[in-house]
Amino acid sequence: MSLLEIRNLTVRFATASGWFTAVEGVDLSVEKGEIVAIVGESGSGKSVSMLAVMGLLPPTAQVTADVLAFDGKDLLTISPAERRALTGADMAMIFQEPMSSLNPCFTVGFQIEEALRLHLGLNKRQARDRAVELLTQVGIPSPAQRLSAYPHQLSGGMSQRVMIAMAIACDPRLLIADEPTTALDVTIQAQILDLLVDLQERRGMALILITHAMGVVAETAQRVVVQYAGWQVEKQDVYGLFDHPHHPYTAALLTALPERAVEGTRLASIPGVVPGQFDKPSGCLFHPRCPRADQRCVEVRPVPAGPELGEAVCHYPLGGAR
């Protein structure tokens, strides 16, 4: 049994003009100790999918799925008390913006110790000792002194390390990292990624890495899920995806990597933008930006191909018959 099982996940939001579908038909399974990356441009529904798993979407959201289960527990039907016990303990999440994810009104120590007291039942002294141990693990110098610091007194990289310490405090079996290196400089990004992979290996937890950086995916992930405009358009192991992408969108993302640029030519790009609430096209959502699109793509919604073609949601997957 997979640690996390998702089948046909759909997330809609109530708006003044009706329902807006942000995520549709996402299928994903994550095994114990596995690293899975979810990639795509901003607006592809990556974060929304995982916030639905965590139960952290606003009341305006409607979440439906054929299966949404963690370690056999149905996340759609468990009670609020069971959900609170699960979130932060067995499942944890690192959010995009460390500077805004921490509460500015409380010290770092209070915010780490709160989770330890609530989920593990530690007393004040035990929680403080554990918090010092966690800050040491994530590479923060003078950890005992840092516990009394407020978030505004920390750098971006230091704040992200505190967020990681909070996320791993209760030894979760699944850690979701949502763009964990956003707004950090390049050297700090590398340190944070190395830290996450090291923690994942030492603790044996499953890691879902949400990112739009394909280079990060190549270095860390075992399997990759590609999302576009709320659709899951391809799923492959990392080597297969980089060597033989099957969806034109995946191929375009890889072609746009600076590492694949040809000297003396312009860096490749994908024309247009990800469609939003009011401009979603008919047929294939990617067809306005796809050089392979024809009238069938404009009129008919594609269905997923077989596993041998990366389950690409495309009428004409690369490597298949046209």
Rank of each mutant, 00 (worst) to 15 (best):
R7P: 02
L9V: 08
L9F: 06
V11P: 06
T21N: 02
V30D: 03
E34N: 13
A37W: 15
S44P: 14
S47L: 05
V48E: 04
V48I: 13
M50N: 09
M50V: 11
M50R: 13
L51C: 10
L56H: 01
A61S: 08
Q62R: 08
A65S: 12
F70K: 06
I78G: 04
P80T: 05
P80S: 08
R83S: 15
R84Y: 01
A85M: 03
L86T: 01
T87L: 15
A89F: 08
M93S: 04
E97F: 03
M99P: 01
M99E: 01
M99R: 02
S100N: 11
L102H: 00
P104S: 04
P104L: 01
F106Q: 04
T107A: 07
Q111K: 03
I112L: 02
A115F: 00
L116P: 06
L116M: 06
G121V: 12
R125T: 10
Q126S: 10
D129W: 14
L135F: 15
L135W: 14
T136I: 09
Q137C: 03
Q137S: 09
V138F: 10
G139Y: 15
P143I: 13
P143K: 14
L147V: 09
P151D: 11
I164M: 06
A165L: 02
C170I: 01
R173Q: 15
L174A: 00
A177V: 08
D178T: 04
E179R: 01
E179M: 00
P180M: 14
Q189E: 15
D198Q: 14
Q200F: 05
G204W: 02
A206F: 08
L207N: 06
I208E: 00
A213D: 13
V216K: 06
W231L: 12
D237P: 11
D237L: 03
V238A: 07
Y239G: 12
G240D: 11
L241A: 10
H247W: 13
Y249I: 11
Y249E: 07
L253P: 06
L254V: 06
L267K: 07
S269I: 15
S269T: 15
G276K: 07
D279Q: 09
K280E: 03
L285H: 15
C290Y: 01
D294L: 03
D294P: 04
E299H: 12
V300P: 11
V303W: 00
G306V: 10
L309Y: 01
L309Q: 04
C314T: 14
H315Q: 06
H315R: 11
P317D: 01
L318E: 00
